[in-house]
Design a protein around this nucleic acid. Structure first.
Lengths: 144, 144
DNA sequence: TATCGTTGTAACTATAATGATTACATCGAG
DNA sequence: CTCGATGTAATCATTATAGTTACAACGATA
């Protein structure tokens, strides 16, 4: 089955690194920690920038948080890099047969349930701030 | 972003149709309601069969529920047609740099949060039985 | 037993998202 | 002006999905 892209985990990685790093974070530097290509990093940073989560110094280089660590939740990051047009994570088979009573009405009934499930997931993501995450990260690493 | 496949909505459609239809449901018949190819239907029915949700009469044709309507939840259907190997819906960027304190530990911290979010979603799906869904469907259609 | 409709699958195609990479224009401090 | 960094387009390989054709196997029944 298709999962969420790894963009999300990379985005969280980037933000954690930016939060913890005393030095300026270039895409090259971040790419080394993530172990991927700098362009991948720049693309994701572009999304985070568009969402107002980070500020990037073009030309001279370097990324910084634009909000406090406790003002950014995992839901914010999720929405910045994963969410499609309408935000739904479930697909529906369009164009069911309108002549069939089931085909004509199943989608709206099913969609309601799916939106509830998605809300539950997003609610959970909204509970976790980057501050918490980074704090747990610090515990794991001892200190940085 | 990539969403869940429409297999899930088709699977629910199939089960609702089988539950409501007084006549035997062939893949041809179901395909007409869903408005797709019979092979698509047979493929999904194959997954539902493997999960023990339906019984199929090969040769003579026709699909029936193998459990009571109130014994099948949306989570059961979800797992039958959508769940990958380990069941996780989130991807992680593997092979982060182990020399970087963040790269070495971010995944395990992040994964914990993601599994909580996924659990919340699945818990919501587990609350809805096909019986409820079909009952709401009946209300919508007046009667079938 | 032979027939006929149905299921179960394999094989193939088109489409789309992802992740990686190269290339290059643009930015901005020194 | 120069140099390093960002922003972004273009390309490629890989993978999942959805649809389609084709056909073997099944099983009731005439």
């Amino acid at each position: 089955m298709k999962k969420f892209s790894s963009r999300y985990s990379i985005a969280v990685h980037i933000l954690s690194l930016v939060a913890l790093s005393p030095t300026s974070c270039t895409s090259e530097f971040i790419a080394e920690s993530v172990n991927t290509n700098p362009v991948i990093i720049r693309r994701i940073i572009g999304m985070l920038k568009k969402a107002g989560l980070v500020h990037v110094r073009a030309g001279t280089g370097g990324t910084n948080l634009q909000k406090g660590l406790d003002e950014i939740t995992l839901l914010d990051v999720y929405r910045a890099v994963e969410v499609a047009d309408n935000g739904d994570i479930f697909n529906f088979h369009d164009e069911t047969n309108p002549k069939c009573p089931v085909g004509a009405n199943i989608e709206s009934v099913f969609r309601t349930k799916m939106l509830q499930a998605q809300s539950a997931m997003e609610h959970e993501l909204a509970q976790v701030t980057l501050k918490q995450l980074v704090s747990e990260l610090k515990e794991k690493t001892g200190s940085i």
